[in-house]
Design a protein around this nucleic acid. Structure first.
Length: 520
RNA sequence: GCUCCCGUAGUCUAGUCCGGUCAAGGAUUCGUGGCCUUCGACCACGUAACGCGGGUUCGAAUCCCGCCGGGAGCACCA
């Protein structure tokens, strides 16, 4: 239901009312929530402002994709504005901002077909956060704490106040000035919110608002040394940027409470929040830091390596962003954490591309096979590009008498009669194919009989193919002659293998034709 | 440990707010059959679910209580 999902903190209703906010409309029986998406609380078409806030530490992945598409969905639904706000505060040792990721993410957004109405960088806005800190201090809502991080943590767990909590407003203002002017070094002082040390939720006790960092920021260098933490920076920016609804993953619900607390303190009306649970794709190990390490070290083939499961890697595999959008939106805004098999995404993509994707023959780990008694008139054949779609036309395939067959097929059907699909029947030898050897098979008949059907590639004009798998492994194979015309980024279905996408450059690039495996 | 969130078939999801129209709908997977000269597509059929225990009620997936299970937070990260 819309209200509960928008207001995970139960008392927000009351607070809204207390702050003069609008009474949530709740027409009985009205649940216009197409596709499982509730109405945004108090949304006025044309006046909704939303924001996406990725942290620039790597390429966007499927989880980020959900954030993108949910925001885009509501933006379209309410004809609203959607801002991109890079959450590039100073971060930490383990979470560092790096310049290259700004463009990378901008590229990902473009790939996803989402054009933000405006782009902001948190790091440009730090100076705007300071006056807000003063406002909070003047309301008696914060104090400067000089406890070492460890002590601070212990006190928080124990519900114990540190001596500085008793600071007067004037003292805090002085201390704050000292922080800003360099009177404290990194780690020596922080500005903390005065919530309650006895708050039942230990996570909520006097959280840190600002801290000192002397790190070099890739965009603004050493311009600032006092940096806000995520919660405070959003308490400011959500208001200053006029965000009307905050849509974020449920990992940030505690941050909602922080923002609401600050806004209430300052008498500001809070925009409602809306969340969704964690989405994991079973096959995808969504560790951004692992991907980061592997990309940096060169173990991965950049951020488009299939093993990253990044948006760009999915694109490279021929999985369309439209399919990804359908996929991510199909889960609605459920708060449950879910794990979905990649097959569900593949099914979505198949729906979109199957009818328009040409078929091609490809054999992995090829074995050279000469067919004795092969009919002379079948040196080449015309085959439809798609079994059900005549309008996709035909291609010419060079055929016998010499072929490449997949080693797996040759071994599996050794000594048996098989049908070369769309061609003729042959009898395979019992001999096991040794490396570099040509096997002898025998033509048996032409008529279509119920035999195991194998893909084949005629030797003439055959194309060497390099198939990159989802696991990052490359498979050498041979594809039919028609692949000589493969265009960059064209998608094919390799029969009995799966959907693949041609890499940038297509067949024009020297060497084997490079393709990436998409899905079955 | 404390706080919050979540629990409907193998996997997702609709339904839960406002109890009956739900002996629970859809998607995907799986199985069977059909069809097309792919292990893909399509068609048909099928298997399969309200976490557990109490309570309220004529009636509970839906309301209440207790439990169990899963996840997240308790960073001077985002």
């Amino acid at each position: 239901m819309a209200e509960i999902r928008s207001l995970p903190v139960a008392e927000l209703d009351d607070r809204l009312a207390a702050l003069g906010g609008p009474e949530p409309e709740r027409p009985k029986g009205s649940r216009s929530a197409p596709e499982g998406f509730p109405e945004l609380l108090g949304a006025v078409p044309g006046q909704v402002v939303l924001r996406m806030a990725p942290f620039p530490s790597g390429a966007l992945h499927i989880g980020n994709g959900r954030m993108l598409f949910v925001n885009q969905y509501y933006r379209e639904r309410y004809h609203g504005r959607l801002l991109l706000v890079f959450d590039d505060t100073i971060g930490s040792e383990t979470k560092r901002v790096e310049t290259e990721f700004f463009d990378l993410i901008l590229g990902d957004l473009e790939l996803a077909g989402i054009r933000p109405d405006a782009v902001y960088y948190k790091s440009d806005r730090i100076g705007r956060h300071y006056p807000w800190a003063v406002r909070v201090i003047e309301k008696g809502g914060a104090y400067v704490c000089r406890c070492p991080a460890e002590i601070l943590r212990e006190n928080r767990a124990a519900g114990r106040a540190c001596p500085e909590r008793a600071q007067t407003v004037a003292e805090t203002l002085a201390e704050w000035e000292k922080m800003l002017s360099g009177g404290y070094a990194e780690g020596e002082a922080v500005l903390r919110l005065r919530t309650s040390l006895t708050d039942p939720d230990p996570a909520f006790r006097d959280r840190v608002l600002f801290r000192i960092s002397e790190q070099d920021h890739p965009r603004v260098g050493h311009t600032y040394r006092v940096w806000p933490l995520l919660e405070f920076s959003w308490a400011v920016d959500d208001i200053e940027l006029g965000i009307t609804h905050v849509l974020r993953g449920k990992d940030l619900v505690m941050e909602d409470r922080m923002q609401q607390y600050i806004w209430q303190l300052l008498g500001i009306r809070a925009p409602p929040f809306l969340h969704w649970g964690l989405l994991r794709v079973r096959e995808a190990k969504v560790s951004k830091s692992k991907s980061y390490a592997e990309v940096k070290s060169g173990q991965y083939d950049g951020w488009a390596d299939p093993r990253t499961w990044s948006l760009r890697s999915l694109d490279r595999r021929g999985i369309s962003m439209a399919a990804l959008r359908e996929f991510t939106l199909s889960f609605g805004l459920s708060l449950a954490d879910i794990e979905v098999p990649a097959e569900t995404l593949y099914a979505e993509n198949r729906k979109l591309i199957d009818a328009t994707t040409a078929r091609r023959s490809f054999v992995a780990d090829p074995v050279h096979v000469a067919v004795e008694g092969y009919p002379f008139d079948l040196a080449s054949v015309a085959l439809p590009n798609h079994p059900d779609r005549a309008e996709l036309g035909v291609r010419t395939a060079f055929a016998g008498p010499t072929f490449y067959l997949a080693r797996g097929d040759v071994e599996r059907f050794a000594g048996q009669e098989v049908r070369l699909k769309d061609l003729v029947n042959i009898s395979l030898p019992t001999e096991r194919p040794g490396p570099g050897k040509t096997l002898s098979a025998t033509f048996t008949s032409r008529e279509n009989r119920k035999l195991p059907r194998l893909q084949w590639v005629g030797e003439r004009e055959a194309v060497a193919v390099d198939l990159l798998g989802i696991d990052g492994q490359r498979t050498a194979g041979i594809g039919e002659s028609a692949l000589r015309a493969a265009r960059p980024r064209e998608t094919f279905q390799f029969e009995r293998v799966g959907f693949v996408r041609v890499e940038d450059g297509g067949a024009a690039v020297a060497g084997p034709l490079k393709v990436v495996y998409g899905h079955p």
